[in-house]
Computed example of a mutant assay.
Amino acid sequence: MSQSLLAELEARARALGFDAFGVARADARPDLPGKLAAALAAGWHGDMEWMEETAERRASPEGLWREARSVILLGLNYGPKDDPLALLEEKSLGTISVYARNRDYHDVIKGKLKDLAGLLARRSGEEVKVFVDTAPLMEKPLAEAAGLGWQGKHTVLVSRQFGSWLFLGAILTSAELPVSEPHEESCGSCRRCLDICPTDAFPAPFQLDARRCLAYLNIEHKGPIPLEFRAPMGNRIYGCDDCLAICPWNKFASVTREAKLAAREDLERPALADLVRLDDAGFRALFSGSPIKRIGHARFLRNVLIAIGNSGDLDLSPLAEERLADPDPLVRGAAVWAVRRLAPERSRELALAYLPEEGDTSVRQEWTQDLHIVSGFG
């Protein structure tokens, strides 16, 4: 395929709003199968069973689609206007990961990718397939091969122009396209992203154990937040941006950054007091079109209640108490923890009322974490 077609594709990508464009061969990363196998063997994927189930296809683009010859990687800047770390100090507010403060990025990007893929198919006569984190394709290492940036020590793609804030999309094609120059890793001796992690989720640079990652725990994990990670979770109610936000490349990128996806104002500084009151209908309405909606009302309330327990705000304790009778045990258990953190004396009184009637084992365990609180029950 000619350079002129590539130039036309890149121009169209820019017109569609993409900020980064590059091409890699489908077989550009022969190291991926081994790295994936090692991560799965170590159990770093936690209870994301789908990673194991799709391992063969995930290991390489050809495993996903045998006819794939080239991969076009696209990046869309979603950098925040303010430092996300500052909100962690405002304990009565909830912190939502920057990527989730607007429309679901899958919806934002997929239409643009289809437009670009259609142009390629018409011009080349070759087959195309589009992917936006909805299939077992490892976009980040392929984006590195395509020159969009490099995978930092936090495993997220880092760009010289947009720091750690790029949504990625990919087009697989049977066309043989001219490839871009791969990007070399440029983290140097910096380890800020590793050192800031509240839960030590990085076994080593460039490796992530999802089982210790707060973003995994408050999004993917379906059960109660493990006790050791509740206090470190702070007021992070969806995701965790610490390792992204601390990256020094963000500072250099901010000179030219003009985010295409400005955050919804109501999701920039949401009050925990408002969020914990949401019923299921209110939750669905507030997060309509948002990736947050996918975790469901109960898991969201679990996260909000953990944040309330970490807030130190005694005015929030009565709101947590109201959730002690919630029909979902996941919510009730988190409410027990929140009340005990904020008002331990009050929790002793409540244990006498609630524990005898509690039929769920996990919630009973929450009540009995401190045995002296509920002496005589068990």
Rank of each mutant, 00 (worst) to 15 (best):
W50V: 07
E56T: 10
A37V: 11
M48C: 07
E56D: 08
M48F: 03
A42V: 05
P33N: 09
W50C: 06
M48K: 03
K35R: 15
G46K: 05
R57V: 06
A59I: 02
A55D: 04
A59G: 01
A37T: 14
A42C: 09
H45W: 07
S60T: 08
A38P: 00
E53W: 09
A37F: 10
A42H: 02
E49N: 10
A41F: 00
L32C: 09
D47Y: 01
P33L: 11
D47E: 15
A42S: 10
L36P: 01
W44F: 15
S60Y: 07
D31E: 15
A55C: 07
E53F: 08
P33C: 12
W44C: 09
R58C: 04
E53R: 11
L36D: 06
R57W: 00
G34H: 13
D47T: 14
A42L: 13
R57I: 04
L40W: 04
H45C: 01
P33M: 13
W44R: 11
E56W: 01
A39N: 10
M48R: 06
A37Y: 06
M51F: 11
W44N: 10
R57C: 03
A38S: 14
R57E: 11
G34F: 09
D31S: 15
A59W: 02
L36H: 04
H45A: 12
R58D: 03
G34K: 14
A59C: 02
K35N: 14
A41T: 12
E49C: 03
R58P: 06
E56Q: 05
E56M: 03
L36N: 05
G46Y: 00
R57N: 04
E56P: 02
G43R: 03
A38R: 12
D47L: 05
A42D: 12
A39F: 14
K35G: 15
M51I: 10
L40T: 05
E53Q: 10
D31G: 14
A39K: 09
A38G: 13
D31K: 11
E52I: 07
L32I: 14
M48P: 13
L32A: 11
W50E: 10
L40P: 01
